[in-house]
Computed example of a mutant assay.
Amino acid sequence: MRKDKRLTQEQLGSLVDLSATQIGKYERGENRMSATRFEQLLSVLGTEQPARPGFAEAQRAYHVPKFDLDGLARSLKTIRREVDRCLKIMADASA
C-alpha cells in the first residue's frame, strides 16, 4: 500500500510520527502493531473503511445471550446432591 502511494518508509513514518526503521519492521512482520496504529496508517494511506481486512468482525454489533442463572443454580444443586450422595457412600463403605 505504501509503495502504491509512492511513499518511502521515511515519508510514511514522518506522517505518523514513526521511524523508517519501525515502518520497515511492520512491513516485514518483525513487530506487531496495535489496532490504533493500524487504523492510523490506513487513514494516512487513504484506505476506505470497507477494505480494512480483519476488522469486519469488530465493526459488527456483538450479541451477548442472556445468561440462565436459574438453570445454573439448578445444575449446581444437582451436582451438590450427587457429591453428597457419593461422600455418604464412601463414608458408609469405610465404616
Rank of each mutant, 00 (worst) to 15 (best):
M1W: 01
M1Q: 01
R2C: 07
R2E: 10
R2N: 13
K3N: 10
K3I: 04
K5S: 04
K5L: 05
K5M: 03
R6A: 11
R6S: 12
R6M: 05
L7F: 04
L7I: 01
L7G: 03
L12I: 09
G13H: 07
G13K: 09
S14L: 06
L15K: 15
V16M: 09
D17M: 08
L18V: 06
S19T: 15
A20D: 14
A20E: 13
T21K: 13
I23R: 05
G24H: 10
Y26L: 15
Y26C: 00
Y26K: 06
R28Y: 01
R28K: 14
G29V: 05
G29L: 03
G29W: 06
G29M: 05
R32N: 13
R32W: 07
S34W: 04
A35H: 14
T36I: 15
T36V: 14
T36D: 15
R37G: 00
F38H: 05
Q40W: 00
L41M: 15
L42G: 05
S43Y: 08
S43W: 13
V44F: 01
L45M: 12
G46W: 07
G46M: 09
E48T: 07
E48M: 02
E48Q: 14
E48W: 01
Q49I: 13
P50E: 13
A51K: 13
R52T: 02
R52M: 10
R52V: 12
P53E: 10
G54V: 06
G54R: 06
G54N: 10
F55H: 00
A56Y: 08
A56T: 09
A58H: 03
A58Y: 05
R60K: 15
R60E: 11
R60C: 10
A61R: 14
A61S: 15
Y62I: 07
H63A: 10
H63K: 09
H63W: 07
V64A: 08
P65M: 03
P65C: 02
K66L: 13
K66C: 04
F67P: 00
F67N: 02
L69F: 14
D70H: 12
G71C: 06
L72E: 14
L72V: 13
A73L: 01
R74F: 00
R74L: 05
S75V: 01
L76M: 06
T78I: 02
T78N: 11
R80M: 09
R81T: 07
E82I: 04
E82N: 12
D84K: 02
R85Y: 04
L87C: 08
L87W: 02
L87R: 15
K88L: 01
M90K: 12
D92V: 11
D92H: 13
A93W: 11
S94K: 15
A95P: 04
